[in-house]
């Protein structure tokens, strides 16, 4: 079976203000089946840019190149903007960090979900509404009818993110890109949202790219983890083997977090080496 997504030598470059270019992503490559892949890195590592490039959402001044960027046999690098629009939200979906900014503030949650579905599938209004309600129920919203008619500002952050997940999954995508989907949420709410995401991804057999700065979270959620540093993948590791990570950057990321009940003063810090970025 051919893989769901193939990425080879992906590069994203921006023109710098003082002339020249800044390469945010420098030759990232991986293949993804119907599995869960985590991409971990700190700010500026290019992890989000990688996700956006796959989605086709990079800023207009960016230059995206890749030897290969294929989704289910479709060459994304050569696809027309129209084709890519059809894929986005349909077969490839993306969840962003903060539902406050990714939901349309002047449209009810229900209508946004219905619109998303009807953009991608020829279903009647009534059927779309039914599927939207089912979807809201699937993200464990207790009273879907009520939330359907609410505006994004009328719901809490956790509820908003669940609505966002519902909207993104309603068209039944094959690949889901989640960029820091829970970082803006409180810790206890984070767990609920992650549980919902976990169940839906499992039940629907989607491919998932989970982008986060939190190495431990990603490894608990995903099968495989790519660790990015300065636009490159410095280590690829199975989640179970995290304790055997070889790259000093990966190990440093694991070490530097304060943990409850362990007494390390001062905390170990990363000794960034120029050769990591080479």
């Amino acid at each position: 079976m051919s893989p769901l997504l193939v990425v080879e030598n992906l590069r994203v470059a921006y023109p710098a203000r003082a002339g020249g270019i800044i390469e945010a992503v420098r030759g990232v490559g991986f293949t993804l089946g119907r599995e869960r892949l985590g991409i971990v890195g700190e700010s500026g590592s290019g992890k989000s840019q990688t996700g956006r490039a796959i989605m086709g959402l990079t800023a207009p001044q960016a230059r995206v190149t890749a030897d290969r960027l294929a989704f289910a046999g479709i060459d994304l690098a050569r696809a027309s903007p129209r084709q890519r629009r059809a894929l986005r939200g349909g077969r490839i979906a993306m969840i962003l960090q903060d539902p406050k900014y990714s939901l349309d503030p002047v449209m009810t949650i229900g209508r946004q979900i219905v619109e998303t579905l009807r953009t991608h599938q020829p279903v009647s209004r009534a059927a779309a509404r039914r599927r939207a309600l089912d979807m809201l129920a699937a993200v464990q919203i207790d009273d879907p009818e009520r939330v359907f008619g609410l505006y994004p500002h009328e719901v809490s952050g956790g509820m908003g993110q669940r609505a966002m997940i519902a909207m993104m999954l309603v068209a039944g995508p094959e690949l889901l890109i989640a960029d820091e989907p829970t970082s803006a949420l409180d810790v206890t709410v984070q767990l609920e949202v992650l549980n919902i995401l976990d169940r839906l991804v499992r039940e629907r057999g989607m491919g998932l790219i989970f982008i986060s700065h939190d190495l431990r979270l990603v490894s608990s959620f995903c099968d495989r983890v790519l660790v990015m540093y300065a636009g490159r993948v410095v280590e690829e590791i199975a989640s179970g083997d995290l304790t055997h990570a070889r790259h000093p950057y990966t190990r440093g990321l694991l070490e530097c977090l304060p943990r409850i009940g362990d007494d390390r003063h001062p905390l170990p810090v990363l000794d960034r080496r120029p050769e990591w970025a080479a």
């Binding site: 700190e42 700010s43 700065h213 939190d214 440093g252 990321l253 530097c256 810090v269 990363l270």
Partner: peptide, 8 residues
């Protein structure tokens, strides 16, 4: 802040 910067 990033985790490694947080530690610093």
């Amino acid at each position: 802040l990033d985790a490694s910067v947080q530690a610093e």
